[in-house]
Design a protein around this nucleic acid. Sequence first.
DNA 1: ACCTGAACACCGTTCAAGT
DNA 2: ACCTGAACACCGTTCAAGT
Lengths: 209, 209
Amino acid sequence: MPLPVPVRPARKRRGHYHHGGLREALIQAAVRTIDRDGVDALTLRAVGSALGVSRTALYRHFSDKDSLLSAVAAEGFRTLRDALVRAWAQAGRGLPGLRAMGLAYVRFGIAYPSHYRVMFGGYLNKAAKGSDLETAGSAAFRALVDALVELQAGRVIQADEPLLQARYVWATVHGVTMLAVAGTLGPEAAGGEALAHFALERVERSLSI
Amino acid sequence: MPLPVPVRPARKRRGHYHHGGLREALIQAAVRTIDRDGVDALTLRAVGSALGVSRTALYRHFSDKDSLLSAVAAEGFRTLRDALVRAWAQAGRGLPGLRAMGLAYVRFGIAYPSHYRVMFGGYLNKAAKGSDLETAGSAAFRALVDALVELQAGRVIQADEPLLQARYVWATVHGVTMLAVAGTLGPEAAGGEALAHFALERVERSLSI
DNA sequence: ACCTGAACACCGTTCAAGT
DNA sequence: ACCTGAACACCGTTCAAGT
């Protein structure tokens, strides 16, 4: 006995010509899979079928799997940058702004641990100058540099070499985030929050005039 | 025409019964492969054939590939701990000892980037309390805690909660190491060294009384 | 006990063929 | 241009069989 067929067939996998925006859709599908199941669970077959598309359709937009992951990383750096500049502005700049920025950074990593890991998984290593990934990563970093330069100009923090100073601050929040993400700080996000506050207080003290 | 057969056949892949120490040999072979070619290049077939052993021999000693990688991570934490305590002692303890410890940490990561990445690749996340990996990781961390407690007792640094203080210092050197390993600091190890010095100076200032 | 060889399910990637 | 389906080489893992 045949099952009753709805008059309007539910959205099914038709011939499906995914015209336009497939590239962006592939990245988003990959991000979703990674954030939910981890990087190891990301297969080109899965990301394709999530969009109702063949597993080789992707090769029209990416040269290989690493290229897709690089795009995922770049996407992450853009999201991170947005979070940083928003935190900086909302906290009214100044030292509170720096503190808010640091906290926003750690929270981003805790919220999207797998995504965060891809961002620092070594793709940046091989990213060419001017590539999408390199540009996005640099832009996120520059948000921090700009804030520090402004604080230096206002005589709020020491006038160290801005690049080195920014790297130091970045390394600290990055380290806090990695320890939180790696589960070294216990099961809950609370450990990450507490450590972030402690560390950011120390960073401020170490930079203060 | 048969090839001439040497009287004493050169050491060849015989039946090869790798009795005793295969477990340790497998870990060492994996470490070598990882440090030379990266984690992605590590296949059970390669690690087996590097020892003249079948690719499934490994399952006598490890439940799966992740289990082997956990052992690799544990091995790394033991090596790291040795480097830390040696640096601390050789620098004559005190603040110079703490500085030497931090530098030894960063240098370890730069020297064995792939190995280092495995150590913080998330296996610690799932490691059971009392497991080899958890024990080795805790021991390395305790080397730092012990040093800080000694400095606190000598009134050299602030009497913060030792665990939180240690996590803060760890996060900083870990962050410096990760940025160096990820290639974010430029091509050479010099960037890592310079940042390490800058950061360790700031950490000292932030903890000083 | 420890190891092997064949087999299985799965993966990234290539490529000729379709619209 | 964009997508498909079959094919290839490779992988982790299982398992019956060998010593």
